[in-house]
């Protein structure tokens, strides 16, 4: 349990560094630290599938960010000391929205089951009958590819659309 608390603290610290630091490359690397601590926490809450995907996807995310930063610029020129006149409105907006989100989230968290004691009504059926009905011993694979195949299909469509979007945005000139 204690290791989850420590990792949460490390993750929050790295997140603040990633938002606040001036060098954009260092910012991307700090975001990588956040992602890797998320991956370690996935292992600690017994989700190895998620941990594998998170680690690999995190590496690719940092590579994509690095490619973008090499294409554009290295330093964040918008950071300056003190609060300017034009910078005060976003801060007020953040305070309003941040407190709103926090209060509402904590209010909603009261309805959730306590940490470590989930309600598993549907999952019980999948766990007990999963091996007989699908033949897969990895219950997560059985759910994403058999019980909830539609979900995965929609995901494939979204990924296809995003690839299409990237190639369309970045192409040199339109076809005549």
């Amino acid at each position: 349990m204690i290791e989850i608390y420590l990792l949460v603290i490390a993750m929050l610290a790295a997140a603040i560094v990633a938002i606040e630091i001036k060098d954009l490359l260092a910012s991307a690397v700090s975001m990588g630290i956040v992602g890797f601590s998320v991956a370690i926490m996935f292992i600690l809450v017994q989700a190895p599938d998620l941990a594998i995907v998170q680690i690999v996807v995190e590496i690719l995310t940092v590579v994509f960010f690095a490619a973008t930063i090499l294409r554009t610029t290295h330093t964040d020129t918008t950071i300056q000391k003190g609060i300017q006149r034009e910078g005060i409105f976003p801060v007020i907006a953040f305070f309003i929205f941040g407190t709103l989100v926090t209060v509402l989230a904590i209010y909603a968290l009261k309805d959730l089951p306590r940490f470590g004691m989930p309600i598993m009504k549907v999952a019980e059926h999948y766990i007990v009958h999963g091996l007989n009905q699908t033949g897969a011993t990895n219950i997560v694979a059985a759910i994403i590819l058999d019980y909830r195949g539609y979900d995965t299909f929609g995901e494939a469509v979204v990924l296809f659309t995003s690839v299409l979007g990237v190639l369309t945005i970045l192409r040199v000139k339109g076809r005549k």
Partner: peptide, 21 residues
Amino acid sequence: FVDPIPQALVLTAIVIGLGTT
């Protein structure tokens, strides 16, 4: 076992997140 359904939901969400990024 731990609850497998949130894991199955998040698994697709991670890859979609990479696409949107």
